[in-house]
Design a protein around this nucleic acid. Structure first.
Ligand SMILES: [Zn+2]
Ligand SMILES: [Zn+2]
Ligand SMILES: [Zn+2]
Ligand SMILES: [Zn+2]
Lengths: 147, 147
DNA sequence: TATAAGCTTAGAGTTGGCTCTAAGGTCAAT
DNA sequence: ATTGACCTTAGAGCCAACTCTAAGCTTATA
């Protein structure tokens, strides 16, 4: 049985974050001392580490909640459900990468067009490009949302 | 002279957003009617379009503020300052891309390891990987901050 | 002149994931 | 017995960039 700060040390999550995750149903302490102190069992620790791993990969807390409920009752969930969550996340990540690559290209082109020297910005090609709006590849999807 | 909704139509920004940008010093109306209505001159419109273009590229409002003050007094700013802002942004973008690529690889590997069929998740390799924490390439930089 | 569309303001709400505070109770070591 | 480290809670605050509301004033059209 670990106390919260010990679980924090083990997982690398802060005690604050552990309580925050508990409030959101991700982690719980299967025991409490008389004074209300949280005590974490081996199963609790494994669950916390599952959460930590999933978070490191980039899953949202909501995704993690779904993955945890699958983990809790594997028999009544399919692999399909797991890959759906994973694929959905991958799509999201791929979308963001695509957006960022457009930004990257635009920024790189701007940098290439301007030496960046100590001369004044009167004829700076970056400022000019921004003024003329002819920055070509602008990002179409400004929000990160999806269906 | 355009009214706010006309400027909104021209720039594709909402009237709300234009007022929000004004509150943050990015856009202003050089005239007001007696009743307080905003009226935008050609120079105002060009400035608003500059802001819009910079935002589309992905610059933060803070970056845009700096770019605008360079634009306002080009003589006393160098190209160096402009490329610094741009390079800084590019570094940020490259950092995010790197993070996302790690997520992408991990997710793809997980998907490859699990067929995603209708069988139950008892032996799901994705769930197992999360349980064992051996997900290899985890993302080190979780926050987007930098010096 | 009446109706509707459009404008004004200050300020609150949204998103996701923390992060921290205040005010107090508990526990181990000296 | 007293320090000091640790624990508890509810709830506020933070970040960026919006997004929206409420309540009231103005303007154009019929
Ligand atoms: Zn010159
Ligand atoms: Zn330049
Ligand atoms: Zn089986
Ligand atoms: Zn599977």
């Amino acid at each position: 049985m670990l106390k919260i700060s010990e679980l924090a040390a083990q997982t690398g999550l802060s005690a604050h974050t552990i309580r925050f995750y508990e409030k959101h149903g991700l982690i719980s302490a299967s025991e409490r001392s008389e004074a209300g102190y949280r005590y974490y069992s081996d199963a609790d620790i494994r669950r916390a580490e599952f959460v930590k791993t999933a978070r490191n990969i980039g899953f949202s807390l909501d995704d993690i909640g779904q993955l945890l409920s699958i983990r809790l009752d594997k028999d009544s969930h399919s692999c399909q459900e797991v890959t759906d969550i994973t694929q959905h996340k991958l799509d999201e990540v791929n979308g963001k990468i695509a957006e960022l690559k457009i930004m990257q290209q635009t920024l790189q082109r701007l940098l290439d067009s301007c030496g960046g020297g100590p001369e004044d910005a009167t004829h700076c090609s970056i400022i000019e490009a921004l003024e003329e709006g002819d920055v070509a590849s602008t990002v179409s999807a400004r929000n990160g949302g999806h269906s």
